[in-house]
């Protein structure tokens, strides 16, 4: 992909990156603050929510988060 193309898709990339970062950071803060999970441990969830795009944080909030 050349630079011109990148420029063309910038309006897409910026919101997507923001969305991913927002989700990832919210999930990461939650992982670190509430160290109780239905399964897995802190390190595992921290890696998952930061590295797996979109699905990671969603999976954490839907399945991994311990009962409050």
């Amino acid at each position: 992909m050349d630079l011109a193309m990148l420029k063309e898709y910038l309006p897409f990339l910026i919101p997507l990156v923001i969305a991913q970062l927002a989700l990832g950071i919210t999930a990461l803060v939650h992982v670190l603050r509430y160290p109780h999970y239905r399964f897995g441990n802190k390190v595992m969830w921290a890696i998952i929510v930061m590295l797996v795009q979109f699905i990671g944080p969603a999976a954490y909030f839907a399945f991994g988060r311990g009962n409050e």
């Binding site: 969305a19 989700l23 939650h30 969603a58 909030f61």
Partner: peptide, 9 residues
Amino acid sequence: TYKLLIMLM
């Protein structure tokens, strides 16, 4: 519980 956040995202 972040359900709204997940849906919206």
